[in-house]
């Protein structure tokens, strides 16, 4: 079976499952929303901008992503679905690739909901002028998080303490991407928005690409049995 076809099939299955059960997106949005409320009181500011705004947006996103990553292979683990997948002629690595794409899509949908809510509740400056920059940076960050998520969730298949393992492994791997996204977003979210320094989105993008290359070599070993 062609790899592309296997990826599309698994992706379709996952998206269908998410549409029918509606399990992941609501929980992720709720956690992110709760964290934004938490940020309001932790920072004790009615409105944030610049550095604080970037942090107050990125931390809820990271926490929501952790929730999604922990459930990434849930359907496969519950009913030994991974063994049945391995019985099929599909290449082993394709399922990991499908999970990465699926996570990327879910993160993008989450942000479509979350960023306006964040702007409404907490962000001081208006969202409008900086929107293209924010979309670009968040998309690159999503790509990095999706690759890290696929890799770490794949590693944790068959582990006794998945829910313990995934957060402590995702956070350090995500740090360089988070640094880049924070540095890129901070000037854009100022009351008087500065220009986006191309170097920081580039850092996030290159980081995602390198991890993606490493991951694509390793993916087949994650699910082989």
């Amino acid at each position: 079976m062609k790899t592309w076809r296997a990826i599309l099939l698994v992706l379709r299955k996952d998206l269908l499952l998410e549409r029918r059960t509606f399990e992941l997106l609501p929980s992720m949005s709720l956690l992110a929303l709760g964290t934004i409320v938490l940020m309001r009181f932790a920072l004790d500011q009615d409105e944030v901008s610049g550095d604080l705004a970037a942090g107050a947006l990125l931390i809820p996103l990271l926490l929501a992503a952790l929730l999604g990553i922990a459930r990434l292979f849930a359907a496969e683990e519950d009913d030994a679905g991974i063994d049945q997948y391995l019985l099929s002629p599909a290449p082993a690595g394709a399922i990991v690739a499908a999970k990465v794409v699926g996570l990327l899509l879910i993160l993008v949908v989450l942000e479509v909901v979350l960023v306006p809510v964040f702007a409404l509740l907490l962000l001081g400056p208006s969202l409008g002028p900086a929107l293209p920059e924010i979309v670009l940076v968040l998309f690159l960050l999503d790509a990095a998080l999706a690759v890290i998520g696929g890799l770490v969730a794949g590693l944790a298949i068959g582990s006794r303490s998945r829910e313990l393992l995934i957060p402590i492994m995702v956070v350090p791997f995500a740090l360089p991407a988070l640094i880049g996204a924070q540095a890129a977003l901070a000037p854009v979210l100022e009351a008087d928005p500065g220009a986006l320094a191309t170097r920081w989105p580039a850092v996030v993008g290159i980081y995602a690409v390198i991890l993606g290359l490493v991951g694509s070599v390793l993916a087949e070993f994650l699910v082989e049995d």
Binding site: L155, G158, R160, L164, L165, V214, L218, F221
Partner: peptide, 26 residues
């Protein structure tokens, strides 16, 4: 610091070695 946590939370010896090796490479 997460290497041992990952490694020793997997019971199956072959799966353990493979996950640990993938982690080591990444």
């Amino acid at each position: 610091a997460t290497y041992q946590v990952l490694r020793f939370s997997i019971d199956d010896p072959q799966r353990q070695a493979r996950a640990a090796s993938v982690f080591a490479v990444a």
